[in-house]
Design a binder for these strands. Structure first.
Lengths: 229, 229, 229, 229
DNA sequence: GATGAATGAGGCTTCATTCAT
DNA sequence: TATGAATGAAGCCTCATTCAT
C-alpha cells in the first residue's frame, strides 16, 4: 500500500543531499576584533527582525545591512549567504526553545504533570517565537539544508518522547500494543501542529485551554491517566 | 456656449473617464472550442507535473508550456498567473481528497471503525498525492491567497470532526470536559502532520501501522474505545 | 543661425519616409455584403470610443473588437493594423472639422467677421472632438505615417490662411512687410495651440472670450482692424 | 496568560506588521563616491543621446546602459525607471532654456526690443534643443507625470507674459479690453508652436525672419508698436 | 574591516498578427 | 465572413554576489 508513495527519502522540492556540515569559510569563526564582533552581532539581530517582517524568501541582504546600519558589502565579511545567517538565527532560536522547555516550572510530580509541563513549555516558547517559527517553516520548505536542520531538530524532540514512552511501557504504564516511534511522531505532530495553527495561521485559541486539551488528549491516548492514580 | 463640449478641465488623452474594463484574458470561463478545452486541460496536467518536480517557487511558466507542448504565450490565453493555474491543480486535488476519503470502505459499524476509515482514507489520499501535498504546503506558506485556500480547506475537515465530537458528547460517548473545537484541531493536526512527516519529509512509516496507531490514539484520547463495547 | 538646426525634414522619432499612399490591401474597399459593411462600421465606431478612452498607444485590437462585439480575428478581415483603422477615424474627424468650420454662421460681412467665423468654427469643432484631437496629437507624434497625415492636414489650413493674407496684401489691407507663409503659420499655431491648451490640457477658458481674444489678436497683428472701417 | 504572545489572529509570515520601507535603490541622493557620480552623469548623458535618437517610447534601458558603457543593472543603481532619468534630462534642458532666454543680448531698450529678445532667445534655445523638444512633446503626451512637468513649465512662461501684459495695461500701453491670461496663452502658443512646426516638424523657416515675424505679430496684436514711438 | 558601486543571469507578461475551422 | 486559439519576440526589473578602494 505504501508502495505507491514516492520515495520517502526524496521530498519533491529539490534533490536531497546528505547532510553536509556547513562549510566553514572565512566567516566561520568569530571575528577577532571587538568591533567585528559587534558588527556581526548587529547583523544577526537585524536579520532576525527582517526575517520576521518579510519572511525568508523576501528578505534581501540589503534589508539586513540597512537594518544593521552597515554597508551592503559588509555582510559578506561575516556570512556567505542568506542561508548562513538564517542558520545562526535559527540556532539561537532553537537553543532558546530548549532552554524554555526545560525551565518551565513543574506543577506536580506525576506523569501528567510532566506531560503538561512539556506542553506548556513548548507552547510558551512557540508563542514567544511565533513569527520566526512561521518563517522557519517557510525556509525549511524551500531550502534543503535548512529543512535538514529542521528535521533534525524535530527528531530531537520526537526521540525524547519515544524514549519516554518506551520507558513507560517497560514500567507497565503504557500499553505495549503501541509502537513508541509511531506514537511519539503522532503525538508530537499534534502538539507542534496545533501550535502552528494557533500561532502562525492565527486560529484563535488561548494558552491554558490549549495546554489542558493537549495534555488531556496526550495522556488519555496513552492511557497515562488511568495509571497515574 | 460650451454646451456640447466635454469638461475642459479633464484632458482625455490619459485619464479616460468611461472605464473600459481590461480584457480578461484567462481566468474567465472555459474555452469555447474543443481545441481550447484540450489545450487548457493539457496545461493543467503539465502544471501538476512541473509543480511536483520543481515545487511551487521554482516552477516557471516556461516549464509548464514546454511540458504541455504549446507556445509560451498560450499560457496567458487561459491563466493570468502561476497562482491561478496552481489553484486549479489544487482544487482538483482537494476534490480527489474528499472523494477518496468518503469512498474508503467501512470495515465495521462501530465508532472506532468510522475513525479508522476516516484515517485510512485520509492517509491513502495523502499517499497518492504526496508530492503535491508537499508543494501545497510550500505554496500556502508563500502565497497569501493560496494559504487562505488551504486554511479554508483545513477548516472544512476540522469542522466536520468538531461536529462529530460534539454529537458524541451529546450522546454521552465523549467526556464533556473537552472542548470539541480544541480537540478537533489537535487530533486533526495529529493525523495531518503525521502524514506530512511520513510522506513529505520522508520519515519511514507504513500504512497499516500508521492507521492503527492514529486510530488507537484518536479513540483513546476521546475515550471512545471504552464506550464502544 | 538656422544652420545649427537639425535637418528640418528629419524629425527625430523615426526615419521619415516620403508619403506612401496607404497600401490598399484586401481591406481597402468596402465590404460587398451588407453584413460586412455593418461589421466594418461597428469596428470604426468602436475604435473611436476606444481611442478616446485609452489613447492611441494603449488601445489594443482586443479592446476594439470587444467593444464592437465581434471576434478578435474579425478585425483583420477589415483592417491590416491599428494604424489603418485609426486613419479611418481620423479621416472622418477631419471631414467633420471642415464641415463645421464652413458651416459656422457668418455674423457680419467684414474681414474681422470672417476671421471670427473661422476662429469660432475651429474652436467649436475642436470642442466637439477634443478627446480625439488629443489622441491624434499623440498618434501623430508616434507614428510617422499618421504624422504625415496630420502635417498635411495642417498645411491645408495654413495654405488657406496664407492665400487670404496674400490677397489682403494685394488689396492693400495688410502691410507687405509681412511674409504670408510665416504669418499664416504663426497665427494658425496661435489658434490651434490655444485650442489644445484649453481643450486637451485642460487650462480653463471659455468659448466666447476665447473667440474674442483670438480674433482681436489675429486682426490687430495684421492691422486688419484699422482697415476694416 | 497569553500575555507575552503576539496577537494570535495575525500570522506573521506574510503580513508583516512593522513596515520596513523597501530600499530605495535609485532616486535618492547623489552617489557618495566620485566614481558613482561619474557613472550617474554618464548615464544621463547617454540617455539624452538615446532619447534624441529613438524618442521616448522606443528608448530602452538597454540602449542607455550600452551607450554609457555600463552593465544593465547599473541603471537601477541610480534610477528607478525610464521616466525618472528622462526627468533629469528634461530638467537640465529646461534650465538651459531659461539661461539662454535670459542671456540673449538686448538690442535696444524699447518694448519691442524686449519682445524681440525674448522671442529670439526662445527660438535659439529651441533650435539648440530641437530634437529633445520634440521628444519632450512625445513624452509629455504619453506619460501623465511628465505632462504635468511640461504643463507646469509652460505655465511659468505664460505667467511671466501675463504679468508683463497686465503691467503694460496699467501703464496705458496696452488696451484694457484684452484679458492678459487669454492673451499670454494665445501669444505664447503662437511662438512655442511656431518653433515646434519649424524645428520639430521640419517646416522650412529661418531664424531671422521668424524672429521678425513673431515679434511684429506679437507687438501689433497688443498695439505695442504704436505706443513705442 | 568597511564601503558602496558594478555585474548580469533569469522570468514574467503583453499583444499584434497569423491560422485552422 | 466570422471565429477564437496559438504564436513568440521583446524589454523590464530584481538582487545575490563580486570587486576595487
Amino acid at each position: 500500500m505504501a508502495s505507491r508513495a514516492p520515495e520517502p527519502s526524496s521530498p519533491p522540492t529539490t534533490e536531497p543531499r546528505r547532510y553536509v556540515p556547513p562549510v566553514v569559510t572565512g566567516a566561520g569563526d568569530l571575528p577577532r576584533t571587538a568591533r567585528g564582533r559587534r558588527t556581526r552581532a548587529a547583523l544577526i539581530e537585524a536579520a532576525r527582525g527582517v526575517f520576521e517582517d518579510r519572511g525568508y524568501i523576501d528578505a534581501r541582504i540589503t534589508d539586513i545591512t540597512q537594518a544593521a546600519g552597515v554597508a551592503h558589502g559588509t555582510f559578506y565579511t561575516y556570512f556567505d549567504s542568506k542561508q548562513e545567517i538564517f542558520q545562526e538565527v535559527m540556532d539561537a532560536l532553537l537553543e532558546d526553545f530548549r532552554t524554555e522547555a526545560d525551565g518551565t516550572p513543574l506543577r506536580g510530580t506525576g506523569l501528567i504533570d510532566r506531560v503538561e509541563r512539556a506542553n506548556r513549555g513548548y507552547l510558551r516558547a512557540y508563542e514567544r517565537n511565533a513569527r520566526m517559527m512561521g518563517v522557519i517553516e517557510q525556509a525549511a520548505i524551500i531550502n534543503p539544508e535548512l529543512r535538514h536542520m529542521r528535521v533534525e531538530s524535530r527528531r530531537y524532540w520526537v526521540d525524547r518522547a519515544a524514549s519516554s514512552i518506551a520507558r513507560w511501557q517497560r514500567d507497565g504504564l503504557v500499553s505495549t500494543d503501541l509502537d513508541p516511534r509511531y506514537c511519539a511522531n503522532a503525538l508530537g505532530s499534534m502538539v507542534d501542529r496545533f501550535a502552528y495553527v494557533w500561532l502562525v495561521l492565527g486560529e484563535p485559541f488561548e494558552l491554558e485551554p490549549a495546554v489542558d486539551t493537549l495534555t488531556t488528549l496526550y495522556c488519555r491516548a496513552l492511557d497515562l491517566d488511568h495509571q497515574d492514580v
